[in-house]
């Protein structure tokens, strides 16, 4: 597999322009525009020296509801890896543009708490395309190391809507929702605030007007904000090392009032986000403890 090293995070805005270009019919024929490949390219992107900046971390923690501790939230490392996701999806031989992809699942494994004074190396690769009920899906696989130790892993599954395999339709088990412990009011500008803190400026999150051309009536909040907000709500009960898996279901339009439900047992934590009025499922998640790595 080819590996390319980046000295710093690629700039996100041009990547979004690139990501959107394949939506113009015929544009993918151009050499610099994604969309020419048949499958996800075999390429590894690496940022070898990733450091934390207190101001950016504080802004992220504030919008997600985390206390600014010395240990960084596990979802923040995803934010640092995200530009690599975008860069990889911006490769000319990537089979389609990133804009229009649906983030359906995200799994993060924190092997030990990561201090904000550590330096990490982050690498991102993508899995092969595989069928999905509503199109095709693939994983962006990210890994963060401190020295030689893998301290964090993230897997984001994206769906490209299209001709799918209906036999793969997931039957959601009829389990009872975890009991509600909190109600959150998501204000209209939340997508813009999170975009500022995370760098993810996908237009579907910013304004109703910028979300409409992409098929959404209203701006929707980032799935990774919702996941982060859930982890912030669980901060006092999270183990030092854990795997947190979430499934993104229906998008949350802004503004919204949603409920957060949680159920803590010896096997782990089950949590869910629902629309406060209609009960629309937005997110289902679990946390399980994993063996902690030493520092």
């Amino acid at each position: 597999m080819a590996t390319r090293e980046l000295s710093g995070p690629p700039s996100i805005l041009p990547l979004y322009a690139k990501a959107a270009l394949p939506m113009i019919p015929g544009a993918s024929l151009l050499p610099f525009v994604p969309g020419s490949g048949k499958d996800v390219p075999e390429l590894e992107l690496v940022m070898p020296e990733v450091t934390f900046d207190a101001k950016s971390l504080a802004a992220y923690n504030r919008v997600c509801g985390f206390t600014l501790r010395d240990a960084v939230p596990s979802t923040y490392i995803h934010v640092l890896a995200f530009p690599l996701h975008m860069a990889l999806m911006g490769e000319p031989n990537f089979p389609f543009g990133a804009v229009g992809l649906v983030h359906v699942n995200n799994t993060i494994t924190q092997h030990r708490p990561v201090s904000m004074s550590e330096t990490l190396s982050i690498k991102v690769t993508a899995s092969k395309l595989r069928p999905h009920a509503k199109g095709k899906q693939f994983d962006m696989v990210a890994q963060a190391k401190a020295g030689r130790t893998i301290v964090w892993e993230g897997v984001s599954t994206y769906l490209r809507l299209g001709k799918g395999d209906p036999s793969l339709k997931v039957q959601h088990e009829k389990v009872e929702d975890p009991p509600v412990s909190a109600t959150w009011r998501l204000e209209g500008g939340l997508g813009r605030r999170y975009a500022g803190a995370s760098g993810d400026r996908n237009p579907i999150h910013l304004y109703d007007l910028t979300a409409k051309p992409l098929g959404f009536n209203k701006a929707i909040i980032h799935g990774m904000w919702t996941k982060a907000r859930c982890l912030a709500a669980l901060e006092s009960v999270l183990p030092d090392a854990y795997k947190v898996d979430v499934q993104f279901r229906k998008p949350i339009p802004l503004p919204s009032k949603v409920t957060f439900g949680e159920e803590i047992s010896k096997d782990g934590i089950r949590f869910a986000v629902r629309n406060a009025r209609k009960g629309t499922p937005h997110l289902d998640g679990t946390v399980v403890q994993v063996a902690a790595k030493k520092r």
Partner: peptide, 17 residues
């Protein structure tokens, strides 16, 4: 300085942790 963006709750939490 380094704690310019930390709130009282953040710092008290860090000391307590």
């Amino acid at each position: 300085g380094p704690y310019a963006h930390a709130s009282n709750s953040d710092m008290l939490a860090a000391a307590l942790d």
